[in-house]
Simulated scan of single mutants.
Amino acid sequence: MDSTLFSNAVWSVEDVFGYDLIAAPIVPAYERGYKGGLSLRKGAWMKEPVDQEEAAGIEGAINLPLMEIASTFSVETIDYPNPLGLK
């Protein structure tokens, strides 16, 4: 209800299906990680809780996008002119 997708975005929803999780990145000065308000998550790896630091230590455990790519998906604290969505 509080998110929207834009038709003039650089990406389409299908373009981000290769990631296990994609969401708006957070400016490191505020927190670390991604905001989940508008996000896509694959259910297979979400069956067991895994925090980001633990996942980062397991090579290939979770396919996360680089911050630059995630910022084109959704906007929270990092502005991008034509994101796929906005929360």
Rank of each mutant, 00 (worst) to 15 (best):
A23T: 07
D20T: 03
E59M: 07
M46Y: 02
A29R: 14
V50C: 14
G60Y: 03
G43L: 13
F6S: 13
A29P: 00
P49Q: 09
N82H: 07
I22A: 04
G43E: 06
L38K: 09
E54Y: 01
L84V: 00
T72D: 01
E59D: 13
G60A: 01
E48G: 03
N8I: 01
A29L: 04
P81K: 14
L84P: 01
W45F: 15
F73T: 10
Y80T: 14
G18K: 15
E76W: 11
L38V: 06
A61W: 13
M46C: 13
W11C: 06
P28W: 00
D79M: 02
P65N: 10
L86N: 06
Y34G: 05
I26W: 11
A55W: 03
L86S: 09
M1V: 01
E53D: 11
T4L: 08
V16M: 08
P49Y: 06
G37P: 02
P65H: 03
Q52A: 05
A23N: 07
V13T: 06
K35I: 06
R41H: 00
N8H: 11
A70L: 08
K42A: 06
E59K: 15
S7E: 15
D2N: 15
A24Y: 04
I69D: 15
W11I: 02
G36D: 06
S71G: 08
Y19E: 04
Y34W: 10
Y30G: 00
V75L: 03
E48Q: 14
G18W: 00
N63E: 11
P65W: 02
G33V: 02
I69G: 08
T72I: 01
A29V: 14
I69F: 02
F6I: 09
S71T: 14
I78C: 04
Y30E: 13
W45V: 12
G37V: 04
V16H: 00
M1K: 01
S12H: 09
W45K: 15
I26M: 10
V16E: 02
F6P: 14
A55T: 01
E76S: 09
I78K: 08
V75S: 04
Q52M: 07
T4A: 08
D51K: 02
S12V: 02
E53N: 12
Y80V: 02
V16A: 13
E76P: 01
P65L: 10
M1G: 13
E53C: 11
D79Y: 13
N8A: 14
N63R: 15
E53K: 12
P65G: 05
L84M: 00
E31C: 08
Y30S: 05
T72P: 00
S3W: 14
G36M: 11
E31F: 03
R41I: 04
E68V: 05
S12G: 13
W45A: 11
G36K: 12
A9V: 02
T72S: 13
K42H: 13
S74E: 06
A56L: 15
V75R: 09
V50Y: 01
T77E: 11
L38Q: 07
R32M: 07
K42Y: 06
T4P: 05
A23R: 04
F17R: 12
Y19F: 15
G37W: 09
V27D: 15
G36P: 10
M1D: 07
Y19A: 12
A56M: 10
L86M: 12
K47F: 01
D15W: 05
L86Q: 10
L38S: 08
G43V: 13
M67N: 05
Y80I: 10
K47N: 03
